[in-house]
Design a protein around this nucleic acid. Structure first.
Length: 469
RNA sequence: GCUCCUAUCGUCUAGAGGCCUAGGACGGAGCCCUCUCAAGGCUUAAACCCGGGUUCGAAUCCCGGUAGGAGCGCCA
């Protein structure tokens, strides 16, 4: 059975690159009837926080990417297991104690760099047949190093990048346990993936250089390596690397910007992966069609404009009842009471075609739910003029007796335009500014219908007053 | 510095040696439609990093440049 995992380290929110690898992993497992597991890599006690764990779960939940393990695995809960494996390796001779101090190592690195060599551990404490090791210094707590085979080559058959060959001589003996006894990342990943039965390791391509060592450790443990898929990174729209201080946003910020989770997933899946010319995929289609044969090996930029377009496509076709809760969240966020106006679904139906985001929709729908705080200066100057005063007066008169339905309102507005010998625009625009406070709104008949008779007429009266003055 | 990765329109990409006069999508430009904003329809500009090979034939294969990137921690 296919088993994949997403294993973030809780040092911040779930960012866009992490979300995409999570999505790829989730899709790959789901598409093959497999399992997708969640694991928290919190062995770095310094930087890991509870808040970050929550933030990651929140992001995953919003995107609808649930792990198949009811409780995620925390590395810090598995310390006993790591110790056990390390003891075994020590006993087998595939790992050894190293007493070199940090200062010693720093100095070694500095010398190697000065000589323009690749910095690496020189094996001074590595046991070798016929080699005499120095006596362990007093009072020094050793680290444990993996005894990396230094002959031959390690072949990584990457599902995305193809075959990558590493010369074993390039791989030095990495530390698997610190002097305080805690295990290090490269070791924990290997043990966890092995214990969890992970068949496909899908992760960022900043890990490719770690992979040969992980394969060696696996081999030392007598386990078969999983398949690997190294996904390239996502760059900012300007082509620069995303970082905390440069455009790296948590997925929840995209919610605030007004994205639908499904749209976010759709944009993300197409960033690097393709299925012919298809741009839009339902979640089910993604599951069925996703594969690594069509994942690009090169980095991709995050294009906001395209993301907006995808979001808009979703807003246009998604069942309004499904959009409503998210829309309500946005209204409340900007301080609008969704109960003080028309039904959300009705508003969504009218606004969905003209808004790329839910944030925009909420903003443009304010006037349905709260009193006008004023008119847009430019629009008022243009449409609430002495010339439009009689138009508004005629409107108030006619609409006052109209049935308050879109069709009837449509006829009424057209009727006024005809009577006064005006183009529809000359009538509709003043109404817009009067009821919406600006010259942009859904079709005027629907706008009036949604707003309701009382509110609409009151606003027309107020506008007539302003226009006449 | 060393090791590894990457390279098609501005952006995401299609392309598995002839189907490529290089396709689609976003964005851009223009036109049409129109009560605003949108949406929609039509048209259009725009790319195979460079140089060598291999081959009857290369965007596709190989080599070398160049340019980006990643890694080289008692971080993950």
């Amino acid at each position: 059975m296919t088993v994949t995992r997403f294993a973030p380290s809780p040092t911040g929110f779930l960012h866009i690159g992490g979300a995409r690898t999570a999505l790829f992993s989730w899709l790959y497992a789901k598409g093959r009837g497999g399992r997708f597991l969640l694991r928290i890599e919190d062995t770095d006690r310094e930087r890991s926080t509870e808040a970050a764990v929550d933030a990651i779960f929140e992001g995953m939940a919003w995107l609808g990417l649930a792990g198949d393990n009811p409780e995620p695995i925390y590395q810090t809960q598995r310390l006993g297991r790591y110790a056990e494996v390390i003891a075994r390796m020590l006993a087998q001779g595939t790992a050894y104690h190293c007493y070199a101090s940090k200062q010693e190592l720093d100095q070694l690195r500095a010398e190697q760099q000065a000589r323009k060599e690749k910095p690496r551990y020189d094996g001074r404490w590595r046991p070798e047949a016929g080699k005499i090791l120095p006596a362990p210094p007093q009072g020094v707590k050793p680290v444990v190093r993996f005894k990396s085979p230094d002959e031959g080559r390690v072949v990584l058959k990457d599902l995305i990048k193809g075959e990558i060959v590493f010369d074993a001589r390039e791989l030095d003996d990495l530390i698997i346990a610190r002097s305080d006894g805690t295990p290090t990342y490269n070791f924990c990943v290997v043990v966890d993936d092995m214990d969890m039965g992970i068949t496909h390791v899908i992760r960022g391509d900043d890990h490719v250089n770690n992979t040969p060592r992980q394969i060696q450790i696996l081999q030392a443990l007598g386990a078969a390596p999983p398949a690997y898929a190294h996904v390239s990174m996502i760059l900012g729209g300007d082509g620069a690397k995303l970082s905390k201080r440069h455009g790296a946003l948590g997925v929840m910020e995209y919610r605030t910007m007004g994205f639908m989770p499904e749209a976010m997933l759709n944009y993300l899946v197409r960033l690097g992966w393709s299925h012919g010319d298809q741009e839009l995929f339902t979640r089910q289609e993604m599951i069925e069609k996703f594969d690594f044969d069509h994942v690009s090996a090169s980095p991709a930029r995050f294009d906001m404009e395209k993301a907006y377009w995808v979001n808009h496509q979703y807003l246009k076709v998604t069942d309004p009842a499904l959009i409503a809760p998210e829309f309500e969240w946005h209204l409340r966020r900007i301080g609008v009471d969704p109960d003080n106006g028309p039904a959300l679904i009705a508003v969504i139906e009218q606004q969905r075609e003209r808004c790329r985001t839910l944030a925009e929709m909420a903003d443009k729908s304010r006037f349905f739910y709260e009193e006008l705080s004023g008119y847009n200066d430019r629009d008022a100057a243009r449409h609430l003029t002495p010339k439009s005063a009689p138009v508004l007066a005629a409107l108030i008169e006619t609409l006052g007796t109209s049935d308050w339905q879109p069709e009837a309102l449509h006829d009424a507005v057209h009727g006024v335009a005809e009577t006064l010998g005006l183009k529809l625009g000359d009538v509709a625009q003043p109404i817009r500014v009067a009821v919406a406070g600006m010259a942009v709104s859904p079709p005027i008949d629907h706008t009036l219908a949604l707003l309701g008779r009382v509110r609409a007429l009151a606003r027309l009266q107020a506008a007539a007053l302003k226009a006449g003055s």
